[in-house]
């Protein structure tokens, strides 16, 4: 790894899921606490239910979806 800072931070919003953040060194949470990133891409909680905030822990999958997305069309 070089000591150069990444020029760009990429943030991707996953539908019904977290923000995927690439290129960030630190995520600052709502209380102003800094959390260093330890992996090349991190998932930041967007639903508020994570038990490991600010990181996503998949809890959003247990929540009812909002807004409801069309699914369960069963072909023919």
């Amino acid at each position: 790894m070089t000591s150069e800072r990444p020029a760009v931070v990429h943030v991707t919003c996953c539908p019904d899921g977290p923000f995927l953040v690439r290129g960030a060194d630190v995520i600052r949470d709502e209380d102003g606490v800094d959390h260093a990133t330890h992996r090349p891409v991190v998932a930041v909680c967007r639903c508020g239910k994570s038990t490991r905030k600010p990181w996503c822990d998949g809890m959003h999958k247990l929540l009812p979806r909002t807004p409801p997305t069309p699914r369960a069309a069963t072909g023919e």
Partner: peptide, 13 residues
């Protein structure tokens, strides 16, 4: 818990 919450997004999307 943490890694796979990232990996599931990367792997699916």
């Amino acid at each position: 818990v943490e890694a796979d919450a990232v990996h599931e997004q990367v792997a699916t999307r």
